[in-house]
Each structure stands twice: as structure tokens, then as C-alpha cells.
Design a protein around this nucleic acid. Structure first.
Lengths: 190, 190
DNA sequence: GTCTATAGGAAGATAGAC
DNA sequence: GTCTATCTTCCTATAGAC
């Protein structure tokens, strides 16, 4: 066994994730990642032999695990649809720091090549989220043909409100979106 | 007078703009910009002594001019609100190539520093767009308190549908958004 | 496991001929 | 105005001590 790590894997991936979400994949330099992680570059390479790409991949996988546990899981749990959605809303608020942090899926879509190393996983995560929302809407008795469009619209509003919050320098678009999300999903009467 | 340019300024800014929208500011290398422009690096520097940052700034200014002419102008023109909105929809469809191209405002928000060189202009363009939409909604008789939120929501949906289209590898979210936009703005009865 | 130091290469930017 | 060739800086990645 080697020496104890000065920072545990979860905290490390958190910090790297915040960095990628601030400046994107290409914008994140090893020097910056090293500073935000509190580790020297060589130490990062010790933990991520695959370099920056591996860091981003593991960050994305950690985000996926988070999504499953705090969003997809609760959405699929038993209970009234409204409660499940409210639970998701709380999770989203935490994850995006009230609108102060961008979405990793958006920031990692900017990678150079046509089909970057994250394209597949990103599409998969969007699909899983939309599917989980759709299931709740079905349970809530939303008409079949409205289900998928409404779920997609909710995700688009989430992404867009984050873009707009970032672009205008205020978190209000995101906060307004979160407040309206339950009725957005369940219907204006909600 | 020097020699004739092998490509006019408008076309040049178009090509650079498409490049930035594909891979973002940090992701766009001078080599790539040179290839997509059809000019050598030194030629780009001749036209943009300020380098990559100046290129992006001028691209952003060109986008602003486009926005004013094809979106804000028509929105402010006389005529029935629905017609003005339909005109804007056509403009948006063209500009984003039916959902195949990302939004410059989103892609340039990823710049390194807290307050990057484009932050101010980006906020300004978002604000101008929201204001122009708000004016139309007022003309359409939308209740005062609903106007601004609804305009903001439309812009968020635009941005988000582009993110989702890019992330899932299909233009359907964007196309669905465009189709629903008029009634989104004018009310479900629209 | 973390560090300092450095290699190797790509990126932004410039010089000077045509 | 555009080009080829080059410079310099920054970035990714590695070597090797502790």
C-alpha cells in the first residue's frame, strides 16, 4: 500500500468537475486543473494516467452516478408524481448551485472533433433523464402524445435557463425556471 | 490601394463564426480558423492584428448586426404581432441552420476568465432580444406581469433546444421548439 | 502519493518576400 | 493582401527524487 491520498477521489472529482463546468474542456488547462484540485500536475497524472481526457471522462461518470442517485432514482421511486418531481427540483438546485454553475453536458459538448470522446455518454444521459421524466408524466396521467415533448421541453428549459443565467450574469432565469418546473411538467393547473 | 482581397469581409466573418460555433473560443485553433477561412495564418493576422480575440469580437459584432437586421428590426416593425413573430422564426431557422449550428452566445460564454472579453456584449445581446420580444408581447395584449417572464422563457427554450439538439445528435428538439414558438409567446390559444 | 524539474510538441503570433 | 518560414510561449505529459 502506498501513502494516503491528500484528497479523496470524490472531492477531487468534484473540484475537477467545477473547473470543467466553468471553462469547458478545451478551456481547462492542466495548470488550472492542478490549482483547483490542490495537486501538482504530476500528481494528477498519477491518478489519471490518461490525462485530461480521462479526468473529464471520470468527472462525467461521477455526474452520471449523481444523476442516477439524486434525480433518476427519486423520479422512479414510488409515491405521488408531484412529490417525486419536487425531490428532483431540490437535487437540481443543489447540483447547479442555484444557477451559478453551468451544465457539464453543455460544456463538454464543445469538444473539438465531430464525434468527441464524450458524445455518446452525453446523449445517453440526456436520454435517460428524458425517459425518467416521461415515466413520471405517464404516472401523472399526462396524455401519451404530450409526454415526451413535455419532458424534452423541461430539459431544454433547464439547459437554456442556465445558458441565459450565465450569459446575463444573474441567476434569476434559472430560479424562475425551477419554480415553474412542477407545473411545467404536470400542467398549468398544477 | 493594396491588392484585392481573395475573400470579402462578410464571407470571412461567416466562416470564422461557424468555426467558433462548432468548437467554441478555446477550441478554435489558429490552424483550424486558417483552414476554414481558406487563408493562411499570417493573412488572418493581417486582417485581424488583435489575433483570435479580435476575430471572435468581430464575429460577435457581425452576429449582433445580423440580429438587429433580421430579428430585432422585424420584431419592432409595424404589423400584427403574429406576423412579426413568424418573421423572426424564419430568421432563427436560417441562422441556426435548422438546429445544426450552436449559438455563438453560448459558445463564447465559455471563455476563461471570470469576466471574459465578450461578457458585456453577450449580456447586452440577450437583453436586447428579450426587450424586443417583450415589446411585441405588450402589443399583443399579453398581461404586463407575464410579458418579461414569457420573453425570457422563449430565449431559454431557444438556447436549451440547441444544447439538447447538439447533445442528442438530432435537430428535433430545435425544430419542435421553433414550431411551438408562436403559441409559446402569444398564448396556448394561438 | 506527492513533489520539482523538464522534455516535447502544439498553439498564438511575427518577419519578410512576392 | 497573401504567402512560407520562423519565433516564442504555453500546454500536455514524463522522469525521477522523496
Amino acid at each position: 500500500m502506498g501513502r494516503r491520498a491528500s484528497i479523496d477521489d470524490g472531492e477531487l472529482l468534484d473540484r475537477l468537475g467545477l473547473a470543467f463546468r466553468d471553462v469547458g474542456y478545451e478551456g481547462a488547462t492542466l495548470t488550472m486543473l492542478s490549482e483547483r484540485a490542490g495537486l501538482q500536475k504530476a500528481s494528477l497524472y498519477h491518478r489519471f494516467p490518461g490525462g485530461k481526457e480521462q479526468m473529464a471522462r471520470e468527472v462525467l461518470e461521477a455526474a452520471e452516478a449523481w444523476l442516477v442517485e439524486h434525480v433518476l432514482g427519486p423520479l422512479a421511486a414510488p409515491g405521488p408524481p408531484r412529490k417525486r418531481i419536487e425531490y428532483m427540483v431540490a437535487g437540481i438546485d443543489t447540483f447547479y448551485l442555484g444557477g451559478k454553475r453551468a451544465c457539464l453536458l453543455n460544456m463538454l459538448s464543445t469538444v473539438r472533433e465531430e464525434d468527441g470522446p464524450f458524445t455518446g455518454k452525453i446523449a445517453q444521459m440526456f436520454e435517460a433523464w428524458i425517459a425518467a421524466l416521461s415515466a413520471v408524466l405517464v404516472d401523472a396521467g399526462v396524455p401519451k402524445k404530450d409526454v415526451r415533448p413535455r419532458a424534452e421541453r423541461a430539459i431544454a428549459l433547464l439547459e437554456g435557463s442556465l445558458v441565459l443565467s450565465r450569459g446575463t450574469g444573474t441567476t434569476r432565469p434559472f430560479r424562475d425556471f425551477l419554480k415553474s418546473l412542477p407545473s411545467e411538467l404536470l400542467g398549468a393547473s398544477g
